[in-house]
Simulated scan of single mutants.
Amino acid sequence: MIRTIVLFSSAALIIINAHGDQLELGPQNSSESCLLEGLKQADPQQTLGELRESCLEIEPTLFKQRVELEKQASKNRFAIIPHRPNFVLPASLTSINQEPYIDTPVGDKLDDVEIKFQVSLKYLFMQDLIFRDLDLQFAFTTTSWWQAYNSGISAPFRETNYEPEVILNYHHSWSLLGFPVEQTTLSFNHQSNGQTGQLSRSWNRIILGFAFAPTDNVLWGFRTWYRLPENEKKTALDPSGDDNPDIQKYMGYGELGGLWSISDKHSLEFMLRNNLRSSDNRGAIQLGWSFPINDRIQGYVEYFNGYGESLIYYNHHAHRLGIGFKLTNWL
């Protein structure tokens, strides 16, 4: 039967049962958390060895491993951790639509080859906010399209999208219509391109998201959003008011994503978005492949086809193929 002595030290938790078996736990992983929870609820006749064996059968999903790593890193109150993937695509080829830039300094001189990169970070502000496994996070993502090879117009940043978020993240597993939900998020999301006048684009959303992990190496994600309304512009160049009142006709009301982690370094991902209109149907698809280069950096190939790759092109169809490096991945 389980009769335990529990000893705490600065670096470990030591459990000794009646048979003299000793188990030392360092920073908790999922199996160790299972063991500690099991000690509270175990049958009196169950041995520590039996309990440990049952917990070792529970293999944490890749998503749970990511959550655990984030929590370990966030024990340092100065830690800022990755949010979405961080990547650089030095070779990014598209067919630039010059229309939004007419009557601007760059005019029709934009190149089809540019650099695309993304920096995405978050800060775990508070754990177990109201109840266990509910965290409050702040995140910031910036994605840029840089005309780095276009010396004729002084290599400007053609477009940069800024996306700050406040996120309530509930990462306790539960079931939705029989599907295993690994994470539930509710966030306030602002996205803009930091421009003024005819190039200005922005919107504010409340986003509800679910992450499903049907198997250990496959993750599905679904997000749906409600756009917060804005006042209409009085004139086209009015600095206040809605810059893009028809954005949901192109961006829709949600998106579906998936990630297949083939191995430690190989993964395939997709994003699918559609406005679900029978007439004037609009949508987008993005595909990604990550592959190993060395222990720290992955190669990354990304393909996009549709509307809304960037805010300036929310209502323009674009297709892009890029290859480069991914510094951090989804998992």
Rank of each mutant, 00 (worst) to 15 (best):
S95A: 05
L89V: 10
I285T: 05
I285L: 14
A91W: 09
Q198P: 06
N189F: 14
S192A: 03
I206E: 13
P85K: 11
K75I: 02
N189Y: 12
L39T: 05
Y314I: 08
Y149I: 15
S92C: 06
L272H: 13
P180T: 05
T141H: 02
M251E: 03
I262D: 13
I130S: 08
L256Q: 07
F78D: 08
N17I: 05
G38Q: 06
T47W: 00
L23M: 09
P44H: 06
D135Y: 08
A91F: 14
G288E: 00
T104C: 09
Q46K: 15
L228R: 09
Q195D: 12
S290M: 04
H19A: 14
Y123R: 11
F325W: 11
L268I: 10
I285V: 12
S261M: 06
Q195F: 04
F212C: 07
Q28G: 01
D103E: 11
Q98D: 13
L208P: 04
M126A: 04
S202I: 03
L124F: 12
D108H: 01
I14T: 14
M251C: 06
P239M: 10
S92Y: 09
P27K: 11
N281W: 14
G197H: 06
N169C: 12
G107P: 01
R77V: 13
D128V: 13
T61W: 08
N315I: 01
H190Q: 11
F78C: 06
S278N: 11
D243M: 04
Q147A: 09
G38W: 00
Y313D: 07
Y300Q: 01
Q286D: 07
I5R: 03
G178F: 01
V6W: 04
A11W: 15
L48C: 05
P180C: 03
A318Y: 08
G197P: 00
N150A: 01
I293R: 06
N231L: 12
W289E: 00
L177W: 09
T141A: 03
E37I: 12
E70Q: 14
C34N: 01
V88I: 14
A11R: 07
L199V: 10
V106Q: 00
L259D: 06
Q118G: 09
